[in-house]
Amino acid sequence: MHPESRFLAHHFDSLEQQHEAATMGMWLFLATEILFFGGMFTAYGVYRSFYPQAFVAASHHLDVTIGTFNTGVLLTSSLTAALAVHAAQAGRRRAVIGFLVATMLLGATFLGVKGFEYHHKFVESLIPGHGFVFPGPHARHAELFFSLYFVMTAFHALHILIGLGVMAYVIVLTRRGQVTPEHHPSVELTGLYWHFVDIIWVFLFPLLYLIR
């Protein structure tokens, strides 16, 4: 019996078939995710075209420095995630765990900074629906902007949180020896997912913070 065949599920004929299925499943899941965010991006696009000035004014209440820092954090985490996959291919189990832990720490940093930003908005009374105060003539439309800001970044943060949970699980799998150079779909697919989460942010950041 081939040593890798312990990973073969009963309903597949070969590991290749099993890998192909898993990878394809992940890509389809990401397609679903893109459309999930797509609805919100559409809403953003429509409202931005309706109320460009209000959106510019509201955008000025976001801190570009913090946003840039967070973007850097997330891009770095994508790098460590890619390195984890690379280490898995090379069979360096400890390195896999190390890179995953680094990715998790960076993800957690992102969430922490995001929380700090949310808190700041709370102090500034920029929470929609709860005593929202916005100086200047665009208060109502700015509230739309901040509604979108909170909903989109919160859904994104939720995805990061899920990613952290998944990586914790993959670390356990790796420690149990379920990751080998030939068979490491868990690391590979987690990496794929994490890059996706990263890419969503790469769109969110300019739309919310930069386009002014």
Binding site: T32, F36, G39, P128, G129, S147, V151
Partner: peptide, 23 residues
Amino acid sequence: LGTPVVASVIALVGIERLFGVGL
């Protein structure tokens, strides 16, 4: 490809009611 869009729009309606944000 279609279901996630309605999922997000229904979620937005729920969020709008729950938190009073105006989407």
